[in-house]
Design a protein around this nucleic acid. Sequence first.
DNA 1: TCATCCAGTTAACAACTGTTCTCTGGAATT
DNA 2: AATTCCAGAGAACAGTTGTTAACTGGATGA
Lengths: 208, 208
Amino acid sequence: MSHTLGARQAQKQKTRQAFLDAALALLEEQSLSSLGLREVTRAVGLAPTAFYRHFRSIPDLGVALVDEALGSLHPMVRETVSTTGDSEERITRAVELIAHYVAAHPSHVRFIARERHGGVQPVREAIGGQLARFAEEVKATLAQDPEAAGWSDDDVLMLARLYVDQMLISASLFLEALEGPAHERDRVARLATRQLRLITIGRDHWLD
Amino acid sequence: MSHTLGARQAQKQKTRQAFLDAALALLEEQSLSSLGLREVTRAVGLAPTAFYRHFRSIPDLGVALVDEALGSLHPMVRETVSTTGDSEERITRAVELIAHYVAAHPSHVRFIARERHGGVQPVREAIGGQLARFAEEVKATLAQDPEAAGWSDDDVLMLARLYVDQMLISASLFLEALEGPAHERDRVARLATRQLRLITIGRDHWLD
DNA sequence: TCATCCAGTTAACAACTGTTCTCTGGAATT
DNA sequence: AATTCCAGAGAACAGTTGTTAACTGGATGA
């Protein structure tokens, strides 16, 4: 049973969310390692010291952003990848999922792409952990496919990582094409589709 | 004919290189967007104002680092990819090239991976430009292969981008495994090899 | 109703930032 | 030998940073 929050707790969560939102907006034009604590509190409209009521440090806030950006994506990915159908259909659905997610949450995607190899260790590790989870989930789905008969566990994971990395690359391309005209986004979608298709063809002939 | 530098110019180039080296070392643990001008000059052992004799700004220095990191790589990549041989041989050579380059220039690789999607626009653009050059070079090589008969130009470029992106991902994995024991690097090498192999199999059956 | 809690405030700290203007001394040019 | 050039130094500028301590006042629970 869910337990109704007091007005106290509710307000605290609102403020915390305001910190996350403000930070994400500021991170459109810089990296986390240059984001200042005062900068964030100023954007929210609070005193600098209020920050410490919600986060221990900026890296700590960064880790929270990672969860916000990727945490809700797991069920979506599982559903998209696991529902049965033609290979080609699944590819189309995957590309559409990416395009839709990027359009709906551009700053989250930018944040993940930027900080995946960024200068803040705990955040890198948090992202790496989430991506490893995605890879495991995709692996589990692939392993259930009839096409996976005869594959070693290691090779299925290899393929899953390939798919996940490819998703991220496509997401980043979609992001770059977001401001531009629609035909640019179509080009990205066609590129992503063909690359996934080529990988899938490679999968079909892996055991030859 | 090459023209011998005066003692004046030679010293200036040495100092400039010292700036680049110091910046690269500092960037092991942070992003370019948080790198301070004074921080760099302090590391070099010069007055803050000396910086302006060599670079207009930190982003400017960043662009110079991109050229240093990727400029010398073009001939190596061309040679590695273009020399004739079995597909499997070429994959092995490519993976070895990456492993060797990461081991020889780890901080350059880290810099490129970190700033490719980093918070400094001119640097992102410089990296993007260099990667596009790599893709074009790989494309030109692939187009000469007998396997490319019947391929559209666009599809060859699609494949070339896939290879280049995969190279970068592998380089980043090699980097993470650099400090660890040798068997970790072997695992990365085996993973990269199999992924390239799968892509190549996909290429062989693309026109089916 | 009264005591407790705690999100947010205020003030102050030493340390740091990028950029300017002016100056110096040795190399380069004439 | 006399002059020009220019890499680097020095000092000062107004702002910025993270973190500390002690506070206020409204919601919470007894």
